[in-house]
Design a protein around this nucleic acid. Sequence first.
DNA 1: AATAAGTTTCAATTATTTTTGAAAGTTTAA
DNA 2: TTAAACTTTCAAAAATAATTGAAACTTATT
Lengths: 167, 167
Amino acid sequence: MDFKEAKNKFVQTWGALGSQWGINKTMAQIHALLMVSNEPVSMEDIMEELQISRGNASMNLRGLMDWGIVYKEFKAGERKEFFTAEKDLDELAVKISRERSKREIKPTLKILKEVSTIEASDLAEEKHFVDQTSKLYDFVLKADNMLDKMTEFNDNWLGKLFMKMMK
Amino acid sequence: MDFKEAKNKFVQTWGALGSQWGINKTMAQIHALLMVSNEPVSMEDIMEELQISRGNASMNLRGLMDWGIVYKEFKAGERKEFFTAEKDLDELAVKISRERSKREIKPTLKILKEVSTIEASDLAEEKHFVDQTSKLYDFVLKADNMLDKMTEFNDNWLGKLFMKMMK
DNA sequence: AATAAGTTTCAATTATTTTTGAAAGTTTAA
DNA sequence: TTAAACTTTCAAAAATAATTGAAACTTATT
């Protein structure tokens, strides 16, 4: 397998993985492309490499910047914009965790709290509902807090956590 | 908010969360419904409550059973099948983790290994590719191993992990 | 062994999500 | 201040994913 094939395979794989985790395939592919590029890439180049339209490239780059994992760069003497990805994997994971927590987990927790605190009648059905959703609330809250704690180790948190677990 | 509203809100919310994480909305809704039901539910009832077709119900129940988080039950004297969800949240999380690892992480690791072990020329571009994909391989492998270790604590792993982290 | 009760399958349809492309918008430089 | 270079926006189109429903299949009962 030569470089070109390998790069393509990586981009396709990352795109497919993204899809499976609820991330638009093109967004994941752009991210993959930038991750393995040693220097900033222009929108033109992204369009060319992935064979996508300008609008698609623009919107997905905006999305990646909103996640805080892709940055705009300006090259001296060049009018157009270039893009780079966060390449530090600890940092990447922290940012994705934080963002998913903010966008998805926190709002879900709010609703879990609402539904788990209704006044249940003495029907077994209703008691079970309150009991189960309360447990779910506790579980999700604990998991969310833990993710926060983990990523607070910041530098090499995965490695540090691994150490702690081994003890 | 009364019980019926709360239950509906929970089912909708769980469905929406599923979508965001790459799980078919109906599948997540069926799972939600079963999680908060204190007794086994028939396919008829699922169809009725979620207003979906028989085919849809059948396929998504099969999917949930493949994940190992929903079980078929038989009631004495009844011909038809009933379904229940895994209600223990530790167990639920373990099963989901294991399955996602098997279906998605492991195959990705295989490809990361392939692409990160190509013979790079001395071009900075190619060197960076090999370097970055190698790091990614290491990171994903470590994360996958850790998930495995975590869930090996089995009972109350989330709580136990939390303890360890605090020390 | 025929019928009834129930479940699964899958081609066709419907719904949802993504992508395109061209017009509108913005910024820089002459 | 105008024009060129480049980016963003968004309605329409295309692609993808989910859903339906009826026929085929399976299992239990008489």
